[in-house]
Nucleic acid binder design. Sequence first.
DNA 1: AAAATGTTTTTTCCCGATAAAAGACATTAC
DNA 2: GTAATGTCTTTTATCGGGAAAAAACATTTT
Lengths: 300, 300
Amino acid sequence: MSKSNNVYKDAFNRCLRLLDETKSLPSEPELGTLLGVSRTTVRSILSRMEETGLIAWNKRNKTVLRAARPEDYFPEEETDSLAEIIERSFMRRLLAEGAEAGMQINELELAREIGVGTTSVREFLIRFSRFGLIEKRRNSHWVLKGFTRAFALELTEIREMFELRSAAAFAALPEDSAVWADLDRLEVEHRHLASEIATRFNEFSELDERFHRLIHRASHNRFIVDFYDVIAMIFHYHYQWNKAEERQRNEVAVQEHLAYIAALKSRDPGKVDVACRKHLKSARQTLLSSIPEGRQAQPA
Amino acid sequence: MSKSNNVYKDAFNRCLRLLDETKSLPSEPELGTLLGVSRTTVRSILSRMEETGLIAWNKRNKTVLRAARPEDYFPEEETDSLAEIIERSFMRRLLAEGAEAGMQINELELAREIGVGTTSVREFLIRFSRFGLIEKRRNSHWVLKGFTRAFALELTEIREMFELRSAAAFAALPEDSAVWADLDRLEVEHRHLASEIATRFNEFSELDERFHRLIHRASHNRFIVDFYDVIAMIFHYHYQWNKAEERQRNEVAVQEHLAYIAALKSRDPGKVDVACRKHLKSARQTLLSSIPEGRQAQPA
DNA sequence: AAAATGTTTTTTCCCGATAAAAGACATTAC
DNA sequence: GTAATGTCTTTTATCGGGAAAAAACATTTT
């Protein structure tokens, strides 16, 4: 069947949400930018919306006829890209019991299990290899290095090196740089979250990523910025599988962020260094505490 | 035609070189380890060697009948893997005139031009993307970021951070660590090369890589070790295309390495830091001087 | 019985083909 | 004449298939 139309389905769902807000939809190119897809896809969406009686469509006129109902939406699982499906599936296996370091990874088996072609699995593994959790043997299989204590330590070592440098660069940015406004906005969001932490603690993860990415960007170094993808990936799955003490942890982290933000705003390199180190130390602790002691790399 | 048999051809050529040294070949598994291929490939090689009268093969007996002649070898170009072919082709384009930052990369066009399937090109681009020279637009084309001055500066910034840390870790390694013997051997090779630099200066590049990889390995951090792949790739092509002052440059570098090695052996952190910084500074200078001033990133 | 050889099965690598999605060009509307 | 819509072309994402290479299993040799 060659290619799924998840881009269309996902954009369709997002477009449905727009219907509530207006009486008529904007032009095709405008919708394209709004949804992040091409006009070709926009027109497929409009066609279906016309067919199902959601809108009346005549050239420039796209009048909303009725509100979107739950059954208008495509099922969530049909809106994921193949890469996302494979990644989730693979990470589930990786973090599950029995995924010991040294184990070999079979493309064909993975493909069959997930129900996709081998090409997609191969491409995924190549993309995934930069995270340092798997390694390719030339002309042969992939080897799992495992989500071990060693991995976490190596990851955090680089993270600390990069973030300290980025934070220093951030504090040295000129007064008129746009980042200070971004930082202010993030500070407000942090304060809101802090005041409602009891109910919204699970929203921290997303805020955390945006905050650290803003800081890393100040390095103006693509390798530092790109490395945050590795951290984000690990923390994403780490949080999904380890909900222990989540509220408590996030509450502490929000306060550390606020102190970190205050230090950045002071533009005092010493204070920045202290606040940054403190937060990174507790982030490392959190990650390490989630890795079972027994999970050690096998001797080669 | 699905898959070329370059693994076989390359291993065959390497096996031919073994014929000069012995009267008879070892067992199949032994040959496999020696050549880094499976027994299946070893047997194909032996079959052909028998057919062309190079050896007499009867079960365990593989007697060499005659020396290898030039015409026994497969042509060099048939021994390269597809990935190597694509990489070379792509790098030629990238470093050629007219490869401006912002330019878009077309998988289909690349595949046609090189004469390979799109899958191989896609896989290459994904693998190559970690070098920070190209970037993917979701559901769309790749964008060339270009081999610019900014790229070189970002690359060397990380390199310096990583190498200083690795060198410090190296110097702190215990007396009985095996690396000291490795270092001694590299020192000898450096002295040999230094004494014959007039004729052998082009051998420096390979020695350089081995030396720096040894140091990086002392970090015991996979991200640091893996990052050297980026540096090695850049320097590899950089040297291929920029032969200006090569002898002079390498002569200086060899001396810097010798000073660096002496500093490591002294195990004095201060001395190591000084020697390392000095060498990295001139390496950066060399790389930067090879990038035309005009080659700037285009505004977005 | 350990290690080789002989044989069979499985997996990797790579191509060509096809639907989805993007992009380019032509035409119409304001 | 600019910006939209309508139409056509190109490119990307993905699959299935087939040869090369690896790996597993069976048999023989020492």
